[in-house]
């Protein structure tokens, strides 16, 4: 699929030639494009005169950068210590079951949800915690997962 890079013109203009811009630039580009494809990184390399290897190196180093298309809603399962001792694994399994994800898969086939883990969301008193987009849900139990997901599916008319 050909990607349209014209929407990146502004960002490139803003950052071109300045030192230390790679991370904020990639953050902005990911925001616009949804993820960082090989083509996107090659395009940025040409436009900014930064070696593609350097861009790829940074993109793969930080967990925030996504190299594959992401679902519409991002579900982050907190894997912090407090959540771990409060059965975060059970929550993740329940999410995987509810989203019908096979092992190794992280995005649903309808591209509605992507399931990821995060080191700690810093809401340890509400453990176990998940975050869907910018909303945090705490004190969860595996049984309550489908009720939360229904709300998002409902908005999509599914």
């Amino acid at each position: 699929m050909e990607q349209d890079f014209s929407q990146l013109t502004e960002s490139i203009k803003k950052y071109r030639g300045k030192p230390g811009i790679l991370i904020p630039l990639l953050q902005e580009v990911q925001q616009i494009m949804g993820y960082l494809s090989k083509d996107t990184m090659a395009y940025l390399s040409r436009e900014l005169d930064i070696p593609a290897a350097e861009i790829y190196g940074v993109a793969t180093f930080y967990s925030m950068f996504k190299l594959k298309p992401q679902g519409k809603h991002i579900i982050r399962v907190c894997k912090g210590t407090a959540c771990h001792v409060s059965n975060a694994d059970g929550i993740k399994d329940a999410l995987k079951t509810a989203l019908e994800l096979e092992d190794g898969e992280d995005t649903t086939s309808d591209m509605l949800f992507t399931l990821t883990e995060v080191a700690c969301l810093g809401c340890c008193s509400l453990a176990p915690v998940i975050m869907i987009d910018d909303t945090t849900y705490g004190k969860l139990s595996p049984d309550g997962i489908s009720r939360i997901l229904e709300r998002y599916a409902y908005e999509e008319g599914k």
């Binding site: 230390g20 991370i23 904020p24 180093f61 930080y62 080191a119």
Partner: peptide, 25 residues
Amino acid sequence: IKEGAGAFVCGEETALMQSIEGKRG
């Protein structure tokens, strides 16, 4: 303000500075 991009090792001071400079931390 510099936003981190998700790498625990960037809490180490020399790695943090690498990250501010836009490199792998």
